[in-house]
Design a protein around this nucleic acid. Structure first.
Length: 368
DNA sequence: GATACGTGGCA
DNA sequence: TTGCCAAGTAT
């Protein structure tokens, strides 16, 4: 059951659209994915921008389009290379879903991104926001594209006190956008709402005095812009204790392991590691036994070189880092393992916590 | 509906 | 330093 939006009746929709879009045309940032409306590039940019800042995305987007300029090139690429292009961006299932969806577009839609809500929403990794963004920006269709910016901006303009942390709230805002959106310039309208949220109608201390639609804003007229949107907080992360070993063989190659193809950091590479359930387990002589038990790895621990804390959105890793030597190596049964030279390592994607591990290893080595 | 899923920046 | 956030989606 949707709440009635009485406040939308107070908006002069035509003037609101004009003020908003005029501001956007004047003030919009010059961004690499705004050079054209290639549906593939719009799609890539929208996936990258999920939960990720524009400044972070820009260099990743440029390199990704260099490496994979077309649907076909991405569909045919090795997954390790695709993950390498995403290394450091986070939420890695985004790019695995993207490649999977791009393969589907290549095969099922002759390489052309579909332009109907039903077809596009079925693609892996394309939810309601991304579907609306592609349909409006690449195809000029008047579909809502409701992200966090849009909810924040509209919660203020229309004085909507729904908790935007609740998934069900999105429907309220989609309904509002359907009433407000410009049918002449839906792309500009949707992007303007998001751009306004990013540049003016910011989460904290919004710049209302610079706002092009201030005169339409209920929150501003009531002085409650700092109380909106309503957003409940999330829970604290749980902590996981890990021990990891930078393992080398006699020729100086590193032993690395490919993570499982689902869950956290799926299909990325890491140093061999184990979860520590009891503090006593970090005693140096116990560590090697644990690696034998859990990975059938015959190793010798040399020394502990430090501790790394890595904070994820939902958990924290405390990693104790060791160096060690491989005694005898044979492929352990579980998962994919590789003995890789420094040069070969460049081809594999490591999540940030393990980039920190290698950085620590390198720094410790350079002092000798 | 609640939780899993990354990372870096900033108050 | 700690916590919150930033153009969400899958399960």
């Amino acid at each position: 059951m949707l709440i009635e939006l009485k406040t939308i009746e107070k908006i002069n929709i035509n003037k609101f659209q004009r003020d908003l879009i005029a501001w956007f045309k004047q003030e919009q940032r010059d961004l690499p994915w705004r050079k054209d409306q290639d549906p593939y590039k719009v799609w890539v940019s929208e996936i990258m921008l999920q939960q990720t800042r524009v400044d972070t995305v820009i260099p990743y987007f440029n390199r990704f389009i260099e490496w994979f300029p077309t649907i076909e090139s991405l569909a045919d690429a090795d997954e390790d290379k695709v993950l390498k292009a995403w290394e450091g961006l986070g939420y890695y299932s985004r790019v695995r879903n993207l490649q999977s969806a791009v393969k589907e577009v290549k095969e099922k839609y002759m390489g052309k991104v579909p332009n109907t809500p039903d077809e596009i929403a079925k693609l892996k990794g394309v939810g309601p926001y991304t579907a609306g963004a592609i349909l409006s920006i690449a195809y000029g269709l008047p579909e809502p594209a409701v992200d966090g910016n849009v909810m924040r901006v509209l919660s203020r303009i229309l004085s909507i006190w729904e908790d935007i942390a609740k998934p069900s709230s999105r429907k309220v805002f989609e309904k509002a956008v359907r009433e407000l959106i410009s049918h002449e310039e839906p792309s500009e309208f949707n992007q303007a709402l998001m751009e306004l949220g990013a540049l003016v109608c910011t989460p904290t201390s919004p710049s209302c005095l610079l706002c092009p639609v201030r005169d339409h804003c209920q929150a501003f007229s009531e002085g409650v812009q700092n109380d909106l949107p309503v957003k409940t907080k999330k829970n604290k992360q749980r902590v996981i204790e890990l021990a990891t070993v930078v393992l080398t063989d006699d020729s100086g190659k590193f032993l690395i392991h490919k993570r499982p193809d689902n869950g956290l950091l799926a299909n990325l590479w890491e140093c061999p590691n184990i979860e520590i359930h009891h503090p006593m387990q970090t005693e140096r002589e116990k560590i090697a036994d644990l690696f034998m038990d859990s990975h059938h790895l015959d190793i010798e621990i040399e020394k502990a070189i430090g501790q790394i804390e890595h904070v994820f959105s939902h958990l924290v890793w405390n990693i104790k880092v060791y160096t060690g030597k491989i005694r005898t190596f044979h492929q352990p049964g579980n998962g994919e393992w590789k003995l890789a030279s420094l040069e070969e390592m460049e081809n594999y994607a490591f999540p940030v916590p393990y980039q920190k591990v290698f950085k620590m290893y390198k720094e410790k080595n350079e002092r000798h």
